[in-house]
Design a protein around this nucleic acid. Structure first.
Lengths: 342, 342
DNA sequence: GCCCTTTGTCGAATCGATTCGAAAGGTAAA
DNA sequence: TTTACCTTTCGAATCGATTCGACAAAGGGC
C-alpha cells in the first residue's frame, strides 16, 4: 500500500539501514550514496510511517492540548490560544492533538498511556484541578497553563493576573478616580475557582483600597439583562462612581451600551478600562483603554517549555508573563463632582 | 518503561496472542481466561501502544482537521467548528489532530503520507482550493467543509448559503420592505472566492430584485470606521432604505451602533436581519432577527461522514444543510414613507 | 609491508502490537 | 475404537521503522 523504507532501499540499491541513516543523519554516509537515497525518497514521495517510528524511538512528534469542556462564554477566548499553540507547535515540528475531558480524564489518560503523544499542554487550569494530579502520576512531560494551588511539581505558565488588576486600578487612580467598580467574569468562573479571575479582582480591589478609594465588584455573565443589572448594581453601591474596570470580553460592549443607555458618557462621566485582547479593545466603536493579556506569548512559551521537556531539557517550574496597559479613548481624568448621581 | 502486552501476558499466565484476542474479541476465549486477562490489564493499567497498533492494523484512530491559516476576523467563527468537530470525533472514538497549512500543504501531506491520520477534514474550503487537489491525489479518506468548484470526487458538506440569503430577503419582503441593503464579509473574503460569501449575497440580491426591490451591497471588514463607511454608503446608494441584511458577525454590533448614531431606530426606522450563530444574535443589547447557520450539525455531519469513509462505507458525495430563520426584535413592518432620507 | 584507525555499509535484532497456522484437548458421530 | 470437528490456546511470522555490532575498504604512522 504505502511506500516503505524497503522500497526506497531497493530503488537506491542500498540496505534499509542505510536509508534510515540518511534520514536521521546519525552515521556518516558518503555523498554519493546519500544523493542516490535522497533521490529515491523524492521520487517515491517517501515519509517514514509515524507509528513504526514511534515504536522504537519512543517519540511521535505529537503533543496534546487538553481543553476543559466549557461551552458558551469561553468559546471566544480559547481560539487565540489554539491558534498560537498550533503555530508554535508547528514551528517546532510538533503536531497538536486536541482533547477535551468531557469524559472525566480518560481522554488524557488514554492518549498518554497509549503513547500517542509526547507531552500534554493543560489549558485553563483551575485552582484545584484533578487533571494535574492525573498528569503527575502519568509521569509524562507536561506544562500547565494557569496557576493551580498545587502544581505537583509540574511546570506552569501564567500571566500575572494580579498585576493586570493592579495596572487597571493604578491607571484610574492616577487619573484621579476614587470611586471605582469592578466587573468580573461569570459567577460560574468564580465558583470553579479559576485562579486568574480571583487574582485579577483582588489585585484591583486591594490597590484601590490601599489608596482609600471607594469600590465594589460583581461577577457578570454575557447576557444583556445581566450586564445591565451588574452596571446598575455597581452604580447603586458606589455613590458617584467615575471609574469601571471590566474583565469580561463578552460583557464589555454591553457595558458600554448600558452606560450610554443611562445617559453616562465615556470617558467624560465614567472612565472604563478593560482587561482583554488588543484586537477586541480596538474593534469597538470607541477604542477601549485596556490591559492586554499576552495570550500568544503565553501559548508560545508553554509549547516551547513542553518541547524542551520532551527533549529532556530542564525547564523553569514557574513562568509568569507581565500584561501591559494601553491607554485608548475610554479613560480620562475624573470629573470634579463625580457622576452627579446620589 | 511503559507496560506492554507481554507484561500483561506474563501476569495473567497466558501468551501474548491470547491477550491480544481478549482485546480485540476476534477469537473465542474461555470465560475464565478472559477474566484473568482483564484483571491483569486493569491492575497494570495497560493500554496498547498506539503506534505499534497502527503499524499492523493500518488504523490509528486519529483524524486531521485542516484549518486554513487565516488570522483575525475569522478566529471567532472557527471555534464552534472546532468544538463541534472535537466532540463529534470523541463520541466516535476518534482523536482530532489540528493542522494549518501556513507552510503550503506540507502539513497535510506529511501527516497523511506518514500514516499519522486515518482521514482529513478540510475546513473553510474555497472555490478553487489547492488542498482539494492534493487530497485527491493522496487517496486518503476526506470530507470537505465548504463547496469547491471542483470537488475532485471528494464528498463535501456545506450549508445552503444561497438559501440563507434568500430567507433574509423574503423575511424583509414579507414585512413590506422594498429598499434593502446587504452588508457582506470583508473584501478579502470575496477576493479569496469563498463560495458561501458569494452565494449568500447573490441569493439575497436575486430574491430582492425578483420582487423589484431597490438594493445595493457592500463588503465590510470589522473595523469601526469601515463599518460606518459601509452603512453610510448603503444609505446613500439606496434612497429611503428601510431594511438591512448583515452577514458579518464582527460588524453586526457596530452596524447597529452606527444606525443609532445616525438617529435611525431599529426596527422602527430600519429593520436588520443577520446571518450569524444563535448565541451571537441573542447576546446583543437588542436580540437580532437572524438566519442561523447549523454550524454544529455541519461539523458533526462532516465527522460522521469521515468516520464512515474510514470504515469503508460509501457516503453521499454532497450534503447540504438548511439554515433557519429566527425572528427576534430587529425586524418590523416597513414604515410608510421610508426613512425620510433623500 | 604491517598494524591501527577511520569511514561507509550491511545484516540482524528489536520495538509492541496483530494474526495466521497449528496443536492440544474434548465431544459427537460413525 | 476411530474419525471428524469444535473450542481454546500458543508459537511464530509480520508490520515499518531504528540501531547495534560486524566487516570490508581506505588512509596514516612506524
Amino acid at each position: 500500500m504505502a511506500v516503505t523504507i524497503a522500497d526506497v532501499a531497493k530503488r537506491a540499491g542500498v540496505s534499509r539501514s542505510t536509508v534510515s541513516y540518511v534520514l536521521s543523519g546519525t552515521r556518516s554516509i558518503s555523498a554519493e550514496t546519500r544523493a542516490r537515497v535522497e533521490q529515491a525518497i523524492d521520487e517515491l514521495q517517501f515519509r517514514p510511517h509515524a507509528g513504526a517510528r514511534s515504536i522504537r524511538s519512543g517519540r511521535n512528534g505529537v503533543i496534546a492540548m487538553a481543553l476543559p469542556m466549557v461551552y458558551g462564554p469561553h468559546n471566544q477566548v480559547q481560539m487565540p490560544y489554539v491558534w498560537a499553540s498550533l503555530t508554535a507547535a508547528q514551528d517546532l515540528g510538533l503536531k497538536l492533538l486536541m482533547l477535551t475531558d468531557d469524559d472525566g480524564e480518560t481522554a488524557i489518560r488514554d492518549t498518554v498511556t497509549g503513547s500517542q503523544v509526547d507531552g500534554v499542554l493543560l489549558m485553563e487550569v483551575q485552582r484545584n484541578d484533578p487533571r494535574v494530579a492525573l498528569l503527575s502520576t502519568l509521569r509524562c512531560p507536561s506544562v500547565l497553563v494557569g496557576t493551580p494551588d498545587d502544581s505537583a511539581r509540574l511546570p506552569y505558565v501564567d500571566f500575572d493576573a494580579a498585576l493586570a488588576g493592579r495596572l487597571c486600578a493604578e491607571h484610574l487612580l492616577e487619573l484621579g478616580h476614587r470611586r471605582v467598580g469592578y466587573i468580573g467574569q461569570s459567577q460560574s468562573t468564580f465558583r470553579r475557582d479559576v485562579a486568574y479571575a480571583i487574582h485579577a479582582r483582588d489585585g484591583a480591589l486591594t490597590t484601590l483600597r490601599a489608596q482609600r478609594a471607594k469600590t465594589a465588584w460583581t461577577p457578570c455573565d454575557g447576557q444583556p439583562a445581566e450586564v445591565a443589572r451588574a452596571v446598575d448594581g455597581l452604580l447603586a453601591k458606589v455613590h458617584g462612581l467615575t471609574g469601571l474596570i471590566v474583565y469580561n470580553e463578552r460583557a464589555l460592549p454591553l457595558v458600554l451600551d448600558r452606560l450610554s443607555g443611562l445617559g453616562l458618557r465615556v470617558p467624560q462621566d465614567v472612565s472604563v478600562v478593560a482587561v482583554c485582547p488588543d484586537d477586541e479593545a480596538e474593534r469597538l466603536a470607541v477604542p477601549v483603554s485596556a490591559v492586554s493579556l499576552p495570550v500568544e506569548e503565553l501559548a508560545r512559551t508553554a509549547v516551547r517549555l513542553l518541547a524542551g521537556q520532551v527533549n529532556g531539557e530542564s525547564v523553569p517550574s514557574v513562568t509568569i508573563l507581565a500584561p501591559t496597559l494601553k491607554v485608548r479613548d475610554t479613560t480620562a481624568p475624573a470629573p470634579a463632582g463625580g457622576t452627579g448621581r446620589s
